[in-house]
């Protein structure tokens, strides 16, 4: 029972992991992106529809990534080049992304005779839980570590790669300098605009994959409007919970994933209304926000220039 709970928590936390990693990539280079929800929605739509028409899982993932990159490109153009307000741009991206995704969904639905959109068995098999001989058959460990769908492993791999990128590579150091003090980075000869674009676009792509997870895995390959359902917002808060560390984001996402599935695993005898469980992630998010804003420890706080657009010739 407990083992099942852990497995369910990890599955439910995976889209959060992608969203959080995308947002970390944005904030590390100084951009507070409130458009995660929208970028995830666009990725959800692109991924699902590509999967629906091509029946190829990896192409679907690539499409979700590309759609995320494109939506982030719009965001980057508005905030980096045109220096639009980041909060407003992000919120716009969210509204636009959800709307676009639902619009395409409804349009495609109208073309079907059955009135439902469901991925074929063929592609469902491709993205089903992996099975590694011997390893996956181990008791407990096999189930706990070696028998998830491919998304989970991709997410963890991206998180570890990002951790390495920020802490052990020169480009990562440069990106962090941009997030902390873009003027200093510029004076040091770092290509601020180029790196900002690059990181924002990759971050958007990661968000997009996370979005695709929602209709393809969580909803069991069935298209439902608003499939991302607020996960993007929790991801923004999770960045704070993870204290801007991709490695801690893995842990944070799975904790939040656990909270989301908790209601199915608490014995029926416990007299707590289901609504309380639905509320939990948001309550915890609020608590985390309060706690982190109270204890401000340096180095584990938001990049200093996050949310501020950089204009070289400003005095």
């Amino acid at each position: 029972m407990f083992l099942k709970f852990i497995v369910a928590a990890i599955v439910s936390g995976t889209p959060l992991l992608f969203g959080t990693l995308g947002e970390i990539a944005h904030e590390k280079c100084g951009h507070l992106n409130l458009g995660v929800e929208g970028m995830m929605s666009i990725g959800a739509c692109a991924g699902f529809m590509t999967g629906y028409y091509t029946d190829r899982f990896w192409i679907a993932i690539l499409a979700a990534f590309a759609a995320g990159v494109l939506s982030a490109l719009v965001y980057a153009f508005l905030t980096v080049t045109l220096m639009a307000n980041q909060n407003v741009t992000g919120l716009t991206m969210t509204i636009f992304g959800i709307g676009l995704s639902n619009f395409i969904g409804v349009t495609v639905l109208a073309t079907t005779s059955s009135g439902t959109l469901k991925l074929s068995e063929h592609i469902m098999a491709q993205m089903g839980n992996i099975h590694i001989p011997v390893l996956s058959d181990l008791p407990v460990v096999g189930q706990l570590l070696f028998s998830y769908d491919p998304f989970v492993y991709v997410g963890v791999a991206i998180a570890l790669a990002m951790g390495f990128y920020y802490n052990h590579t020169k480009v990562g150091l440069n990106v962090q300098a941009i997030g902390e003090n873009p003027a200093a980075a510029d004076a040091a000869g770092i290509r601020v605009t180029k790196l900002k674009y690059l990181n924002i676009m990759i971050g958007g792509g990661i968000c997009g994959i996370g979005g695709a997870y929602c209709p393809m895995i969580i909803n069991g390959g069935k298209w439902i409007s608003d499939s991302v359902d607020g996960l993007g917002w929790i991801a923004v808060a999770l960045v704070i919970f993870a204290m801007w560390s991709p490695n801690r984001a893995i842990f944070g996402s799975f904790v939040f994933g656990a909270l989301r599935v908790l209601k199915f695993y608490v014995p029926k005898s416990v007299p707590v209304p289901a609504a309380i469980y639905d509320m939990l992630p948001f309550v915890i998010t609020a608590l985390v926000l309060i706690l982190t804003s109270m204890g401000k420890s340096m180095g584990k706080s938001q990049p200093a220039a996050c949310g501020l657009n950089y204009f070289r010739e400003e005095r």
């Binding site: 020169k170 150091l173 440069n174 300098a177 902390e180 003090n181 200093a184 510029d186 340096m298 200093a304």
Partner: peptide, 22 residues
């Protein structure tokens, strides 16, 4: 106005943006 990243060490600030490999 100094162009330094506050949370970095002196060393990180000095090498910041230089072309050399790690």
């Amino acid at each position: 106005h100094f162009k330094l990243v506050d949370v970095f060490s002196a060393m990180d600030n000095i090498v910041l943006g230089t072309e050399e490999k790690k």
